[in-house]
């Protein structure tokens, strides 16, 4: 097998990838996940499934992945370092691979203070870079995190990580990205881009170090439904930069939702056409998955390419 996953095949064959993000439900039914898979499967190459995002308890990322897979949509399993120690992480990822998951996104995870169990103890036995590193080693050297040999059937994930060009210290974000790539990250998803100028500066530094040649960078975009959503992102979400001009544009729009979609499409087109080194787009339509087909169509990214894994 030449490629570990469809997402890897898309990226390494040189296509401009389209991924999205699905937050599992706060209940124990798969009906919404199945519906999402049905709506999205022809419009995106893969879908991240968040792992208790913002530290709110939800149906597990791996279990949700099974439902997407059954529905014909390739999952990217998110694994945070907040809730599991090195033993649980390895056990769950062996299980995920056995269930057909092939993409893995390693992240620190939002602090539990933001969630619905703020008094929980966090784990952080390892951090996201260590997780990337040890999962790559597990695949390439057939070793558990402790160094013990995996005799057969080692999990072989296409491994990704995230980068936030809007967090500080700005220049060091590129060094840290390099560290993630050095640790083994093969694809990188960025935080939602609203401040295009800052993202361009970030990508300039990324290209200067040749990082875009060493990993596939997918720029994050977030379609906004209203100026209030923009304001919330601007003021309440750590690690985001939302320019005032965007908030005002949505505020003055007659139809805020279609304006939000228009903004998102402009962003995708701009990134695709003008910012070198970006290999795909990651659309985070937080609880607004229905809008993704329209965005993908209007951004000129439909139909999605067919790829062979072998």
């Amino acid at each position: 097998m030449k490629y570990l996953s469809k997402l890897q095949a898309i990226l390494e064959d040189g296509h401009f990838a389209v991924t999205t993000e699905i937050g599992p439900p706060k209940h124990a039914s798969a009906h919404g996940l199945k519906r999402n898979a049905q709506i999205l499967k022809d419009f995106v190459d893969a879908a991240n499934i968040t792992d208790n995002q913002t530290a709110i308890v939800r149906l597990s990322s791996i279990a949700a992945g099974v439902h997407l897979l059954t529905g014909g949509l390739e999952p990217v399993v998110q694994m945070t370092c907040r809730d599991r120690n090195r033993i649980a992480i390895q056990a769950d990822l062996l299980g995920a691979y056995s269930l057909g998951m092939r993409n893995l996104l390693c992240i620190s995870g939002d602090h539990q203070q933001f969630g619905n169990h703020p008094t929980a103890k966090n784990v952080y036995d390892l951090d996201s870079i260590q997780l990337v590193n040890l999962m790559s080693r597990m695949r390439d050297e057939k070793k558990f995190f402790c160094g013990e040999e995996i005799k057969e059937y080692e999990p072989r994930f296409f491994i990704g990580a995230v980068a936030n060009p809007f967090a500080d210290p700005f220049e060091y974000r590129v060094d840290r990205l390099e560290k993630k790539i050095k640790a083994g990250a093969q694809f990188i998803q960025t935080q939602g881009v609203f401040d295009m100028e800052r993202f361009e500066r970030f990508m300039e530094m990324v290209r200067a170090k040749g990082l875009d040649q060493r990993a596939h960078i997918l720029a994050g975009v977030i379609p906004l439904k209203s100026w209030r959503a923009a304001k919330f992102m601007q003021t309440q979400v750590a690690g985001m930069i939302v320019p005032d001009v965007l908030v005002d544009r949505l505020k003055n729009a007659a139809a805020p939702q279609s304006e939000g979609v228009a903004v998102c499409i402009e962003q995708i087109k701009y990134i695709k056409e003008n910012i070198k080194g970006v290999h795909g787009i990651h659309i985070m339509a937080i609880a607004w998955e229905d809008i993704i087909p329209e965005i993908v169509r209007q951004a000129g990214l439909f139909p999605r390419p067919e790829v062979e894994l072998d």
Binding site: C81, R82, S108, D110, H111, N122, Y124, D127, S128, I129, Q130, V162, A163, N164, A167, D168, P169, Y172, R176, K179, Q191, A238, G239
Partner: peptide, 11 residues
């Protein structure tokens, strides 16, 4: 988060 390879994306 006691992160050893920080800072995380929330800084």
């Amino acid at each position: 988060k006691s992160i050893l390879n920080g800072p995380c994306g929330g800084s």
